[in-house]
Design a protein around this nucleic acid. Structure first.
Length: 640
RNA sequence: GCCAAUGUAGCUCAGUGGUAGAGCAACGGUUUCGUAAACCGUCGGUCGCCGGUUCGAAUCCGGCCAUUGGCUCCA
C-alpha cells in the first residue's frame, strides 16, 4: 500500500520491542488505517499549523508530506524562498497567531472530482486558490489514493490540506512547540525525484514537557561518542593527514578494541571456531569471482595497478594487474576453504577473523565512529551442510544473546530481510528453492528462540536472506550493530565443494556473521551506552592509586600496591603529586577511572586501602588483600 | 553524491570592517594537603584553505576542503 497524504505511517507490531515503531518503515508495506497516538496527533496538527504559517509568509509554498516522527514532526515543501533557521522566529510567530486563533480542524469529505479541481487550482496545502500554480504534490498524492477510499480535507482557518487526519480538535489545543532544523529530502525518498525542503519541529502538550525534552537532548549531547571519545582520549580523526572516516585509535581506545577482541576470541574458541588471518588486499579476480565487481565498485577504494614494470614474478610487459583493498573478508575466507579438499566430516567449518576492511562510504554518510571507511570486523564464516544449517544459525543467535547479556543491551530487535520473488535473477540470485528453504529455516529459528524480530521483505543481500541486529543507544540513537547473513550463491561462484557421504561434490551453505559488528561501530555504541563509564574489565584505566600528602612511607606503600596490581595485569596508574587529594580525586573522576584507591599514612598503618569507585563515591577503607582480590574477580568475571 | 549549517589556542567558546580574547589544559614557581579542582605567573593562533572587494578582512563576496543536521546509499 502506498503512503498517503501528509499522514504518517505507523505500524503496530506486537511481540517486539516497544521501540520498533522507530524502524524506518516503508510506506508500501504499512497500513494507513492505524490510529495515531495523542501525542502524534498533536504533532501532526502542529505540522499543519507550521504549513499555515509558511503559506502566509511564502504563498507559493508547495507542500508534500507532513507526518509526525519519533521526536516531533516535519513537513516537506517546495518554496522559492530557501528557509533557514533564521526564519524560524518569524514562522513560529505566525504559528502562535494561528494557535491563538484557535481554529477548529474541520474534516471535509470530498469527491475525487472536487479534490482534483481544487488541486489544479492550487487550493490544497494553501490559504487560497493559486491560479496557474496547481498543488502538484497533493495532486500526485491524490492520484495514489485507491478508488473507493474516502478523500478528506482538513481545514484550519483558511488553510486547507489534503489529509487523512486525524488532528486535535482545534489549533488552540496544540501546546508548546518549537522548530528545530532544516534539511533536504527527496520527494518520496527517491533520489530521482526533486529535492524538497524539510522543516523539522517538535511539540508537546505543555511547556514543561518541551523544556524537559530539550534538557534531555543536552544530556544526550554529553554522551555523544564523538565528544566522549575525544575527552577520554579514545580515538581521533585526522581528515587532513589520514583521511576522512579513518579513525586513529589512541592507547585508551585500543584497550577497548583489544578487550572486546579478547572476549570474541574466547567466545568463538568455545564455540568451535578456528582463527585465520588474511591480507588487506586482493586481486581484481577475487571480486570479479565473488560478484562484488563491478556492481559495488563505487563502495570500494579505487584499485592499485601494478604491471608493465614487472611485478615480482611476472614477465616484462605482462598485463597490468589490479589490486583492491578488501571491502569484506568473505572472499579471502572462501579461498581458505578452497585451499584444501574438504569432506563432509570437516563441516561445519567455522573460520573467524577480526578482519580489517575498507569501504569508500559516501562523504555525506561518514559519522564519527559509527560510519567509517576503515572497519575492523568481528567476522566469521561458517561453512555447513543444509542439514547443519538450522543448528549453526541458532548457535550464532545464542551468541548474540550472550553478548547482549554481557553488555547489558536490553533494547534490540532483529531485522530479518527476505527476498522478493519478483526480482529473482535481477536483485537476487535466481535460486528460488534455496531462498524458500533458507528463509523458512531462519524464520523457524527466530520463532523457536523467542528473539524479537521483524520481517522486512525485499531487503535481503543479493546472495541470501540476512538478519541485521538493531540496538538503541541510551540517547535514543538507533544502530545496526551486527549482521548475520546466509549465503548460498557465492560459495558456488568460487566453486567451493565438499565431498559428501555419497562420494559426490556438493556446495556448502555459508553463514556470514559478525555479532560484535565492527570495533568502530560497537565501541561508538558502547561509549554512548555506558556514557563513558565502562565496566571494570573494559576500562582503559582500571585503577589509579592516589597518595595523600607527601609521606614517603605512604608513597612506598602505594608503589607496592601498583606493582602488585600490575603483576596481575591490571591497568593501573599512580598519582603521587604533592597536591591536595581533592584535586587528584577530581582529575581521576574526570578521566572516568573506574576504581580509585586512596592511600595515606592511616591506610598504610592499618594495611588497608580506601576504595572509591567512579560514580559511586567513597566506599571506605578495606584490607588490602581483600580489595585486590575483589578487583581481580570483577575483571575475570567481566562483571557489568 | 545531494540540500543546508558550521569551521577562531590542545579543549569549550567570545569577538558585526581598524593591533586576536577568556576559562580549562600545558609549562614554571609557591602551597604539604584525607575523597570532584589551592595561589601566582608564563607559553600558546597563517582566525579551515585559496582567491576577490577594501586604505584596511576573523568579520563582506566567491570557490574548495572538512565536520555536522537531514536525504540517498549501505555486499
Amino acid at each position: 500500500m502506498v503512503q498517503r497524504f501528509c499522514q504518517p505511517i505507523h505500524v503496530t507490531m506486537s511481540a517486539v520491542s516497544p521501540n520498533v515503531s522507530n524502524l524506518p518503515i516503508q510506506g508500501k508495506e504499512a497500513s494507513t488505517r492505524v490510529s495515531m497516538s495523542e501525542l502524534d496527533r498533536l504533532r501532526h496538527s502542529c505540522a499543519h499549523v507550521m504549513a499555515t504559517a509558511i503559506s502566509r509568509l511564502w504563498p507559493d509554498a508547495q507542500f508534500a508530506y507532513g507526518p509526525p516522527v519519533e521526536n516531533g514532526f516535519y513537513y516537506d515543501l517546495e518554496c522559492s524562498h530557501r528557509i533557514t533557521p533564521e526564519d524560524f522566529p518569524r514562522i513560529e510567530e505566525e504559528m502562535r497567531k494561528e494557535i491563538e486563533a484557535d481554529h477548529p480542524f474541520e474534516r471535509i469529505e470530498v469527491t475525487r472530482e472536487q479534490a482534483m479541481q481544487d488541486a489544479l487550482r492550487g487550493r490544497l496545502g494553501a490559504l487560497q486558490e493559486r491560479p496557474g500554480q496547481p498543488s502538484r504534490y497533493k495532486l500526485d498524492l491524490l492520484q495514489q489514493i485507491p478508488e473507493g477510499e474516502p478523500i478528506t480535507y482538513y481545514r484550519n482557518g483558511d488553510f486547507i490540506d489534503l489529509c487523512a487526519g486525524p488532528h486535535v480538535a482545534s489549533t488552540g489545543r496544540i501546546g508548546a512547540f518549537k522548530l528545530t532544523s532544516v534539511a533536504s529530502a527527496y520527494y518520496k525518498g527517491d533520489a530521482r525525484n526533486p529535492q524538497l525542503q524539510r522543516i523539522y519541529g517538535t511539540a508537546f502538550p505543555t511547556r514543561e514537557e518541551l523544556e524537559r525534552y530539550f534538557a534531555m537532548l543536552e544530556e544526550a549531547k554529553k554522551r555523544d561518542h564523538r565528544k566522549l571519545g575525544q575527552e577520554l582520549g579514545l580515538f581521533t580523526l585526522d581528515p587532513d593527514y589520514v583521511g576522512p572516516g579513518l579513525p586513529l585509535w589512541l592507547p585508551k581506545g585500543t584497550v577497548l578494541c583489544e578487550e572486546i577482541e579478547k572476549l570474541a576470541k574466547e567466545t568463538e574458541f568455545r564455540a568451535g571456531y578456528l582463527r585465520v588471518k588474511t591480507p588487506h588486499i586482493a586481486r581484481e579476480k577475487m571480486y570479479l569471482t565473488s560478484g562484488h565487481l563491478p556492481y559495488y565498485a563505487d563502495s570500494m577504494f579505487p584499485p592499485m595497478e601494478l604491471g608493465d614494470e614487472g611485478e615480482a614474478g611476472t614477465a616484462e610487459g605482462a598485463p597490468r594487474v589490479r589490486y583492491y583493498l578488501k571491502a569484506m573478508n568473505c572472499p579471502h575466507h572462501h579461498r581458505i576453504f578452497a585451499a584444501e579438499p574438504r569432506s563432509y566430516r570437516d563441516l561445519p567449518l567455522r573460520l573467524a577473523e577480526y578482519g580489517t576492511c575498507y569501504r569508500y562510504e559516501q562523504s555525506g554518510e561518514l559519522f564519527g565512529l559509527m560510519r567509517v571507511r576503515c572497519l575492523n570486523m568481528n567476522d566469521a564464516h561458517i561453512y555447513c551442510t543444509p542439514e547443519q544449517f538450522a543448528e549453526e544459525f541458532n548457535a550464532v543467535n545464542q551468541m548474540y544473546l550472550e553478548y547482549f547479556r554481557i553488555f547489558g543491551i536490553e533494547r534490540y530487535v532483529m531485522r530479518f530481510s527476505t527476498h522478493d520473488p519478483a526480482r529473482l535473477g535481477e536483485k537476487y540470485v535466481n535460486e528460488p528453492e534455496l531462498w524458500r528453504q533458507t528463509e523458512d529455516m531462519v524464520r523457524q529459528v527466530l520463532k523457536d528462540s523467542g528473539i524479537p524480530y521483524v520481517e522486512v521483505p525485499n531487503e535481503a543481500a543479493f546472495y541470501g536472506p540476512k538478519i541485521d541486529v538493531q540496538v538503541w543507544s541510551v540517547i535514543g540513537r538507533e544502530f545496526t550493530l551486527a549482521t548475520n547473513q546466509v549465503d548460498f550463491a557465492v560459495p558456488k561462484r568460487f566453486g567451493l565443494v565438499y565431498r559428501d557421504r555419497d562420494n559426490t561434490d556438493k556446495t556448502p551453505l555459508c553463514i556470514h556473521r559478525a555479532p560484535l559488528g565492527t570495533h568502530e561501530r560497537f565501541i561508538g555504541f558502547l561509549i554512548e551506552h555506558y556514557a563513558g563509564n565502562f565496566p571494570l574489565w573494559l576500562s582503559p584505566e582500571q585503577v589509579r592509586v592516589l597518595t595523600v600528602g607527601d609521606d614517603p612511607q605512604a608513597r612506598d606503600y602505594a608503589a607496592s600496591l601498583v606493582r602488585e596490581l600490575r603483576e596481575h595485569l591490571v591497568r593501573v596508574s599512580a598519582d603521587y603529586e604533592p597536591v591536595p587529594i581533592r584535586a587528584k580525586i577530581a582529575a581521576a573522576e574526570a578521566a572516568h577511572v573506574h576504581t580509585i584507591l586512596v592511600v595515606g599514612p592511616r591506610d598504610r598503618a592499618a594495611g588497608q586501602v580506601s576504595v572509591r569507585v567512579h560514580g559511586k563515591g567513597n566506599l571506605g577503607a578495606r584490607p588490602r588483600a581483600e580489595v585486590i582480590a575483589d578487583i581481580l574477580a570483577a575483571i575475570r568475571e567481566r562483571r557489568p
